[in-house]
């Protein structure tokens, strides 16, 4: 457990599929009190929202259940958020993977990764850019675990904090808009550095509560 004066109340949204245990435990190790929920009213009422990275875009859009405008409004109003892998992709407008609209908080599309071997499966280097972002505090040379066939392409490169290279592709490893971050890799599967990143996110949430 992290040295924190009080636990940070985090909602972990459950699309109904996949492993949420490691992410919940990783957040708890960073000093969070985690509520796993399938309800948006509950998910948007905590100090921070985490969108996990398991499932397919279509299934996750189904779980949005027409609430994308409401989620977008909450993010516009400053609800701190971390989207992981699919959860990051959900922050964008649309995806080549399947029909349906994402939350549309970060302008751009999700497209198939350009490489011979897909999915990208394994540990890849997260390359500089805005690595002085507090999300990467203490992580100057991070190698992170990826398991993805699709990547995000923000309309404006200014949203991109860091990139990774795979096959013929250099893609957004991390994005940020305001108090909302997205990472294409899985911090909860990236061993100690990944746990550090989750803790950094929680530190930011705690700091924002005092603003």
């Amino acid at each position: 457990m992290s040295e924190r004066s009080r636990p940070i109340d985090v909602a972990l949204f459950d699309y109904g599929a996949g492993n949420l245990h490691s992410l919940a435990k990783g957040l708890e190790a960073g000093g969070a009190r985690v509520t796993v929920t399938t309800r948006w009213d509950e998910a948007l009422a905590r100090e921070a929202l985490v969108l996990p990275g398991v499932g397919s875009f279509g299934a996750a859009v189904g779980a949005l259940a027409g609430e994308e405008a409401r989620v977008r409004d909450a993010l516009e109003e400053g609800l701190p958020c971390l989207g992981i892998c699919l959860g990051m992709q959900l922050l964008f407008d649309t995806s080549e993977e399947s029909e349906g609209e994402g939350i549309g908080f970060i302008p751009g599309q999700v497209r198939r990764i350009r490489a011979r071997t897909v999915p990208q499966m394994g540990w890849n280097d997260v390359e500089a850019g805005e690595m002085d972002d507090p999300l990467f505090r203490g992580l100057p040379q991070m190698t992170a675990y990826y398991a993805n066939s699709f990547v995000c392409e923000p309309t404006d490169a200014a949203y991109t904090l860091a990139t990774s290279t795979y096959g013929h592709d250099r893609f957004a490893a991390a994005v940020r808009r305001g108090r909302c971050w997205g990472v294409q890799f899985h911090p909860e599967k990236s061993s100690a550095p990944g746990l550090r990143l989750l803790e950094n996110f929680l530190d930011e949430v705690e700091g924002m509560a005092h603003e």
């Binding site: 203490g138 100690a192 803790e199």
Partner: peptide, 12 residues
């Protein structure tokens, strides 16, 4: 290969 011990370190 991925380096065995990385900078950072969690808090568990």
């Amino acid at each position: 290969v991925r380096p065995g011990a990385q900078a950072g370190g969690g808090s568990r």
